[in-house]
Design a protein around this nucleic acid. Sequence first.
DNA 1: CCATTAAAGGATT
DNA 2: AATCCTTTAATGG
Length: 229
Amino acid sequence: MLDKSLIADLPPFVGMENDSLEKLISAAQAQRYSKNAHIFRQGADAEHFYLLLDGYLRVVKVTEHGEQVIARYISTGELFGIAVAIGRDTYPANAIAAVDCVALVWPNSVWQPTIEKNPSFSTNTYRAIGDRLQETQDRLVELSTERVEQRVASALLKLVRQTGRQTDEGVLIDFPISRQDLSEMTGTTLHTVSRLLSAWEIAGLIKSGRQRITVVEDHKVMLIAHGQK
DNA sequence: CCATTAAAGGATT
DNA sequence: AATCCTTTAATGG
């Protein structure tokens, strides 16, 4: 049996009445996903919506030719797979566990009643959707105006803000991330990312290993992101 | 400035 | 052993 304290303090649910919370949580099912598992697939019928309780996952668009673009990362406490919120009946992308994850799963049928009875939940989720839209628009501008170096630096900083964990060496990005992943976030190739990271490591801005990146000099990375090298 | 191609070595399963 | 990740160099748009 799930307890409402699991979700009561998470951003999507702040301001909700206690009995509404209880009702919502009782309609949910907890589900574990091991690393690299697909939670849902692009184009599949959207029958559920989700909340990430623990872990990180990536949202990946796949083209007809098999090329992948990482649309965004979802971290703990975020809703995802909310196709129902924007009137879609299929999922627009794949959701893949970046590490072992735990999520709550609801059937879409509980979305509409929950929205209707809980104005705060409604505003919270539509705000979140708005934020994500804003983010993708910012990325569009980035892609068309900034050099690769700036885009990779920006992506690093975004990940640090979203998932950074302080260590004695700097701020570690808290899940396995490859050069390929970074290239899929920034519209470049893994080779270019590899070269950039190598150069930054020599310059002391970051430390990196296989699927590990630690930002040591975030200020200097920020300078690169903003174009003044 | 950056993508592509190729080659090779290390890490992971 | 097979596969995945990373680095490096050469070439060309």
